[in-house]
Design a protein around this nucleic acid. Structure first.
Lengths: 94, 94, 94, 94
DNA sequence: TTAAGCGATAGTTTCC
DNA sequence: GGAAACTATCGCTTAA
């Protein structure tokens, strides 16, 4: 088994420190994520203040995201074909 | 109707530009958010590689988040009570 | 395809009956749920009529719910730890 | 002001008892509501286990609910007309 | 490798 | 109109 065999206090505290470190890194990132989510909310509010229908805006963003995902998939597929054919393609810098 | 009464091509293109600008700002932020979500995923993977159980880690993060939210909620409630009682509380300077 | 291969009228009508039965069971429950939601609303109204601030009441209910959820979450975490450590814990008999 | 002028310990404890009573009544109802929500979830799960697409089932339930609401509205409207015309209609027992 | 359960997030509705 | 509750959808993780 990879890690237990936990025979001493030293390893325990090391583990604890590690856990703590991971948790803190995650929480830090989560906070950033939440802050950005807040920003997005504000932008929608601003758009609304300018007379736009946020419901429609959200729809547009969703659709464009799908389009984007599809394009990414198609490009991935294309790359796959090309590498299968022994062709090399320089990745576009988007 | 509150909004446009949009009688000319000029206003239309202004609106379009505005929409485009909002959409792009949102999408930019969404990308950042997705990038951070990716980072978080990586951190969990790294933790897993160090022998930690990600399921447990996730629960810990969840509980700590709840703790935090609840503390906020309780403080808000306290303020509410105090204002209901006509008491003024100087907000702590965080 | 997992499902139909639906070759005859008999199966169709069986399916229809089944759908109808599920829908009706769901709708029956939904009605009950809506009725209870109405009751809750009435209780708040009654409390308000007795001079209580419903805003505060709602917050109290929310916080108590959070407390409860969190306790549940922590118990789940404990179980998780124990199972991760290979310990078996007999579940309380509800 | 309706109720405070709270000058004594007796009234306080009465208020507290009242609050407690309201809270408990609400929580009791909330539990029932949650239980029913759980039942509904189970029914959907059962339907899924029988090969039905829950997404579609949900759609059907939603549509039927709208239909129902519309019918209720139309009946209310009808009643209104009839009473305006001095006609009495015995309410159907649905 | 897929299916399914679960947790998180996004969107809609409702209440104040 | 803004905030909170509920619902639905999505994506991950896990287990068969």
């Amino acid at each position: 088994m990879a890690y237990p065999s936990n025979s001493g206090a030293v390893e325990d505290s090391v583990s604890q420190d590690q856990i703590r470190a991971f948790i803190e890194r995650i929480e830090r990132r989560e906070e950033e994520k939440a802050a950005i989510a807040g920003d997005i909310k504000e932008i929608y509010a601003e758009a609304k203040g300018n007379g736009f229908d946020t419901k429609i805006l959200r729809r547009i963003v969703t659709i464009r995201k799908q389009d984007h995902n599809e394009r990414m998939e198609q490009e991935a597929l294309l790359e796959l074909y090309m590498s299968a054919l022994g062709m090399v393609d320089a990745p576009a810098e988007d």
